[in-house]
Design a protein around this nucleic acid. Structure first.
Lengths: 234, 234
DNA sequence: GACAATTTGGACAAGGATGTCTAATTTTTT
DNA sequence: AAAAAATTAGACATCCTTGTCCAAATTGTC
């Protein structure tokens, strides 16, 4: 028996198999609160005591998990980047490769993109933190850009090129078209973003509709127009 | 010799212009430095000593001119807003109302807009300060928005409507078109803006060209295409 | 040149924030 | 139940910043 147990569970001291559940929960809670406070107050204005209070932990726990303020900030941005990128690529996977009604399908895609990627918590926070602190942390900025927007653009460009190849669109430069696609998708939301607010569902719908109609006016082919000759007014 | 020198540099000395020579110069220098520091470090991170040093005055002089940090910040934003709006409307006045070559004329206008309004010092600073602190100073934000972007949009919409009426464009909703015009004009510059940099002349040209070609593909009439059937590749 | 306003540098108090330390307490694992 | 790990509250030293005060020096005006 003794032999069995020692064999099955080697005496190599219980490897840090599973750290407490409450431990990771607190870590997440700290990152969450820190994201909110850094975003609201900026790096210099953020107060560790406030972060601790908002996370529901003691200040010492914050220091135990992440060494100092800078390290905490970097952890926050990396966490946001990771989750945001996951959301972006999940949404990109829903791009309408074989559209039945290209206008309706692109509008729906656009709304998913806006709702799940640019209007949500991670998107809002990242946008603000990057704008405010990218010069102080250039490597964080590069990380985010290379793993996020840069890939998004080329992935979207590939999707658009495929649609063009299938005859739905008439595109010279897919990379330019991809940037314009995104610019048009958000054209009506800029002021709300600047204010730090979250657009209503109606605003997201109207921005996506206006944007995609303009995009299709620019890049749609006869095939699109034939299928959808007279879009209804908003 | 003595006569010569005194004659060449007349004794008329700078005309006795009441109080301010060095006074107003110092005030401007302080606003300038404060704008730069607030923008770089954020409100909380900005240091009055640093502002004073960068302005080349003593700290006490900063306090003499503008009471405290908050008042200084508001003065900076109001100053930037005023100068930025002046630039925007001066540029709007150069909109091509009777274009000879609509594509070339719109591209040129776009470049003026980007160069003089969004890429310049005031534009860059205002964008960052608004994004960072608009929630802390909502009344400053409203002031800027109502006297700047809101008027810009409607003014641009009116110009576009006029072009449409003259047969150059085919536009349903001029307000939507105006927002899309601006979105397309800057579509290629977003990443540079986010990084806090200033786009090169080549980037501004390429962004304006790509943006206006897309805009005209969406909203141009046969009249445009007839005049400019085959735009050269970039 | 005399006079008034402005600027300067430095000292200073008050307050706030960071990060460390410790002893007590709670939670988790064995 | 006991041992180990994590958390807590609080005190604390240290540093930084804001905003004030003041005497001396500078500038510009009459």
């Amino acid at each position: 028996m003794d032999f069995m147990t020692t064999a099955i569970v080697p005496d190599t001291l219980p490897p840090p198999v599973s750290l407490p559940r409450g431990h990771e929960a607190k870590r997440a809670s700290i990152l969450d609160a820190a994201g909110s406070v850094f975003c609201r107050e900026g790096f210099a204005g953020a107060n560790i005591d406030l972060i601790a209070a908002e996370a529901g932990v003691s200040r010492q726990t914050v220091y135990n998990h992440h060494g100092d303020k800078q390290t905490l900030f970097q952890a926050v941005v990396r966490d946001l980047t990771e989750r945001s990128n996951a959301g972006v690529f999940a949404t990109l996977a829903t791009f309408p490769d074989q559209p039945k009604d290209i206008e309706a399908d692109l509008i729906a895609f656009c709304m998913r993109l806006n709702r799940n990627c640019v209007c949500n918590r991670e998107g809002k926070f990242l946008r603000k933190l990057m704008q405010a602190e990218s010069e102080r942390y250039p490597e964080l900025f590069s990380e985010w850009r290379d793993h996020g927007p840069a890939k998004t653009w080329s992935a979207l460009a590939a999707r658009l090129a495929r649609l063009a190849h299938a005859g739905y669109l008439d595109i010279d430069d897919p990379d330019v078209a991809a940037r314009q696609f995104l610019a048009l998708a958000n054209a009506d939301l800029h002021m709300t973003f600047l204010l730090g607010g979250t657009p209503s569902e109606a605003e997201v719908l109207s921005s996506a509709t206006n944007g995609m109609r303009a995009f299709l006016r620019a890049y749609g082919t006869a095939r699109c127009v034939a299928e959808k000759p007279q879009p209804a007014a908003v």
